[in-house]
Simulated assay, not measured.
Amino acid sequence: MISQPGRQPGSQRNSQEGAPQGLCPSCSAPLQTPLACGSCGVLIDVSHDEPSPFAILGLDVTFDVDAKDARKRLRRIAHKVHPDFYATAGEQQLDLAEQNNALLNRAYEILVDDVRRADWIVRNFGGPGEKDLGCMHQEFLMEVMEWNETLDENEPGSDEFQALEAELQAERKHLIESIRGYLTPLPDPKTPEGALALKDVRKDLNALRYIDRALTRVSGLPAPL
């Protein structure tokens, strides 16, 4: 489980504030990201203890993340770790830059995606995994069957497809708002209420998987794995 130093799950601070990162091992300057020092420019090898995506972008753990702010942080940190800046620095430095740049991009992708961000929080707060809750409720599975029938019996671009897409998008929005409610403030997994909230978020995430698969069929894109 990963938590911010000195903070308990369930407490919150403004997500726009940079989460504390410690000091640079080279010059002792405060770090804004565990991947590199903004003062002396040294790259930091974090392969022995991979930081959280929130720590990488200098954010506190929270469900609500400002995508524009995350993008600004991505660009700022990329100037410190992108491999293009280390093309002539030697093989070891180039390899480290590639490693840290990959970690940076993956952290950003998680933080700007509501589903992946919620999944990270549930897993790292000790909540259930995708397969830990068993089958979905029968009522929901019947609804999924109706969606599939509509997709099988109608042509892309038809009124039925458009109506189904609107229904799926509305249900998706509802589930995201439900997840936001459970994760704001962040639940304390040590309490019965917190453990139940994480379980409820996992149920919503599992339902979103079905909805997103149906939406990919509506759009004609390959279904996600």
Rank of each mutant, 00 (worst) to 15 (best):
L94S: 14
F125A: 14
T33G: 10
A89Q: 13
L111F: 00
A19F: 00
L225A: 11
R117M: 00
Y210M: 09
S52N: 04
L168M: 04
D212H: 14
E91S: 15
K203S: 10
G38A: 08
E50G: 01
E177P: 02
R75N: 10
E155S: 15
L225H: 08
Q21V: 05
V46S: 08
S15Q: 11
L168R: 04
E155M: 14
D188N: 15
R75C: 08
P192E: 06
K190S: 12
A223Y: 01
M142G: 15
L94C: 07
E91M: 13
L215D: 02
Y108H: 15
I110M: 09
D188P: 04
Y210C: 10
P156A: 11
S219P: 01
I121W: 03
D69V: 06
C27W: 08
P187V: 06
D188L: 01
P9S: 03
Q32R: 11
R123K: 12
E109Y: 13
A118H: 07
N101T: 13
G134Q: 09
I77G: 03
E139I: 13
G194D: 07
C24K: 06
F125P: 02
A89P: 12
E50I: 11
C40H: 03
Y210Q: 09
E91F: 11
P224L: 04
S52Y: 03
A55P: 05
A70M: 00
E193H: 15
E160I: 14
N124H: 14
D49T: 06
G6F: 04
S47M: 01
S26V: 11
G157M: 14
V122P: 02
F140G: 12
S52F: 04
F54L: 00
Q92L: 14
M145I: 09
E167Q: 15
N206H: 07
L103N: 05
D188Y: 02
E165F: 05
D132L: 11
S158L: 13
C37D: 01
A223H: 06
D64M: 04
Q32V: 06
Q92N: 15
E98W: 05
A70G: 05
L104W: 00
L103W: 12
P189K: 08
P189T: 07
S3E: 10
S158R: 12
I176S: 01
E167A: 13
E160W: 10
P185W: 01
T150Y: 08
I176P: 03
V81L: 08
S178M: 08
S178V: 09
S26E: 10
D64P: 00
G58Y: 00
E143I: 14
C40Y: 03
E98D: 12
S178Q: 10
I44L: 07
L57V: 04
I176W: 03
G157I: 14
L35I: 05
P9D: 03
I211W: 07
M136R: 15
R213H: 11
L31R: 00
W147K: 04
A78N: 12
E171H: 10
K131F: 06
P51N: 02
R71N: 09
Q16S: 10
K72L: 10
T33I: 06
R172C: 05
L151Q: 05
M145E: 15
Q4A: 12
A223W: 00
D114Q: 11
S3D: 08
D113V: 08
T191A: 09
L168T: 09
T150A: 14
I44C: 04
E153D: 15
A89Y: 07
K199W: 03
N154I: 07
L96G: 11
